[in-house]
Nucleic acid binder design. Structure first.
Length: 571
RNA sequence: GCGCCUGUAGCUCAGGGGAUAGAGCAACGGACUUCUAAUCCGUGGGCCGCAGGUUCGAUUCCUGCCAGGCGCGCCA
């Protein structure tokens, strides 16, 4: 079944241009060697920024003019003439020469009608395609250490990661999301020690708080929570220091993990799997991997440590796998984890990391390369920082001073839909200024409201139609060729671009494209709404416009859905 | 010093070899007896950081420089 009309038409035009050039070359109107330019890729067709230049434009004449030995505009008109004489004409109404030698293609009313009909028949599937052919992709994101609350960059990662997974699924990939839980490292011991210290303090014992301990209030709360539970308090009083620390490690870990899971669930971010580093280690996967690396000669011993020759595989320098004290650095289990992902059948891995992890990529890439996986198996998406803005001023955050805004704090302050949209609306590689006042604002300035309002307006029109005794059967067979106003065509054009937009966003790993698209779509819809009265005296036109609004409602909903944002029927 | 990211309208940012570089906000001026004015329409506003290079064509690609952010552990 066709799912992208624009793609279909583009392919047809490209093919026709190629045929036209071949015909002209054979007929001697163009030199024979111009066809060399055609070898390989499809003839380029772009969507002009300015709609006056038609639905498609080809710069092919500019590219081959030199070889053809004729001015670009002359080459363009030869091609256009040949093309219009031979091409299939269901959708192409005219091919015009413009500017320095572009061939602009204007599409027919049939295209408008078929576009709207396609959207209405595909419904919530509109925008999806099978490009990925079921390739298994794993997106790992957030993966915050289980030693404290989720922060604002984690919230950005959650929104971006979740949207990317939805995009990949829409593009036909078998995409899965995973949260890697670092529950085995030194930091977990530091957490245990921190909670234990607070426990001793609450008991009134003199006990030094660890130098590098976690000083957040939550650490004290966890200790207090344990003491307030009589059954736990009893057991604790019978434990020696080692046993108590060990108890607190598990107790705190469980609490914090639950907390993180709850925060993300509230944020509507779902993970297919929470993968425990501890469980990975328990399988012996790390030892096995290191054994294989040693056997392959990718390691050496120096200063009592075991090193990975990562610089042989593109890293800046070699990395320690096993420290001189016999413990692993994070590199060893992390590499084993990535190997594990691939062993589960994923052929493509995407890691979404915070800006402080950029050095990490070289190590992981080197590791996977040394294991023999092809380049491009792992893609790292580095998120840049988030600055919260309040009243036009950056919100100062200092861990030391305890002025720290967590993801939970943020979600208490701004609605979930707004937070998700704001985190996704910028390029991942750009710093993000998050305007708290704007995200909270119930006004036209707020882009989330603006898009949601477009959906609500569609619903409102249908409520009116129903009140007027019009049912969906009445417009199912509307004459869609009646849609001809500029604002109607702008809307159709924008909706027709949605499948391309979804695919590009997925392939470029650029969720921000969909955020932008949603805003643009809402904008053309609102223009249409004020330009064209939908329910009016002209019955045929009313039906055509109801069908158009039905399509718009679908596309707005699909765009919001891919970002995990609600589409409200009333506002 | 090295690495990553970013320099586009007053502000926040899109775009990413192609036609006259876009949007929102801010400023100014208009539009509701009609499906939600939470909206729409219009006006002004730009050496696309600087300098070279690649080519039919560069804001876009390459190199160098300048500026800002972040990072550079046998921490994760």
């Amino acid at each position: 079944m066709m799912h992208n009309l624009m793609e279909h038409i583009r392919g047809g035009i490209s093919h026709s241009i190629e045929q036209a050039i071949r015909t002209l070359a054979t007929a001697g109107e163009l030199p024979g060697d111009v066809v060399d330019v055609l070898s390989g890729a499809e003839v380029p067709l772009e969507v002009p920024k300015d709609p006056r230049h038609g639905e498609f434009a080809s710069p092919i004449a500019l590219a081959i003019a030199k070889r053809a030995g004729k001015p670009p505009r002359e080459v363009a008109s030869l091609i256009a003439r040949e093309l219009m004489a031979s091409a299939e004409r269901r959708y192409v109404e005219a091919a015009e020469i413009a500017g320095p030698g572009f061939i602009n293609f204007r599409l027919s009313k049939q295209w408008v009608a078929d576009s709207v009909a396609l959207i209405r028949s595909r419904g919530s599937e509109y925008g999806r395609c099978d490009f990925g052919r079921g390739e298994r992709v794993m997106v790992e994101f957030v993966s915050a250490n289980p030693v404290g609350p989720l922060n604002v960059v984690n919230a950005r990662a959650a929104a971006v990661g979740d949207t990317l997974v939805r995009l990949l699924k829409a593009a036909g990939y078998d995409a899965a999301s995973e949260f890697y839980v670092n529950d085995a490292g030194r930091q977990v011991e530091v957490l245990a020690e921190s909670v234990y210290a607070r426990y001793m303090e609450l008991k009134g014992d003199d006990y030094a708080f660890p130098e590098d301990g976690y000083r957040g209030e939550y650490v004290r709360d966890i200790a207090a929570g344990a003491m307030e539970d009589p059954r736990i308090a009893d057991r604790l009083s019978a434990m020696n220091a080692g046993e108590a620390r060990s108890f607190f490690r598990e107790y705190a870990l469980g609490h914090i993990l639950d907390w993180q899971k709850r925060s993300l669930a509230e944020y509507q971010v779902h993970f297919d799997k929470w993968f425990s580093e501890r469980e990975l280690r328990a399988t012996g996967a790390v030892e096995t991997m290191i054994g294989e690396m040693e056997a392959a000669g990718h390691t050496y011993r120096e200063d009592g440590a075991l090193w990975f020759r990562s610089s042989d595989f593109g890293d800046d320098k070699d990395r320690v796998l096993v420290k001189s004290d016999g413990l692993y650095t994070y590199v060893a289990p992390d590499l084993a984890y990535h190997k594990n992902k691939l062993s589960r059948g994923f052929t493509k891995l995407v890691d979404i990391l915070g800006p402080d992890h950029h050095g990490y990529e070289g190590r992981m890439q080197a590791g996977l390369k040394s294991f023999g996986y092809p380049d491009g198996t792992l893609e790292v998406l580095l998120l840049q920082l988030v600055t919260l803005m309040r009243e036009g001023q950056p919100v100062k955050m200092s861990k030391r001073a305890g002025e720290f805004i967590t993801m939970d704090d943020l979600l208490e302050e701004v609605p979930r839909d707004a937070a998700r949209y704001f985190f996704v609306m910028r390029n991942t590689s750009s710093h993000l200024d998050f305007d708290l006042d704007l995200a909270r604002a119930q006004s036209m300035d707020n882009p989330v409201w603006y898009i949601q309002y477009a959906y609500a307006r569609c619903c409102s029109i249908f409520r009116q139609a129903e009140a007027a005794g019009i049912s969906s059967d009445d417009w199912a067979s509307a004459d869609l060729t009646l849609l001809a106003e500029p604002s109607e065509l702008d809307l159709v054009r924008k909706m027709a671009a949605f499948p391309d937009e979804v695919l590009s966003a997925a392939l470029e790993r650029a969720p921000s494209r969909i955020a932008k698209y949603g805003l643009d779509l809402a904008s053309v819809f609102h223009s249409f709404y004020s330009e064209c009265r939908v329910i009016g005296d002209d019955v045929a036109l009313t039906m055509a416009r109801l069908a158009l609004v039905d399509a718009a409602k679908t596309v707005v909903a699909n765009a919001l859905n891919v970002m995990g944002i609600e589409a409200p029927e009333r506002m």
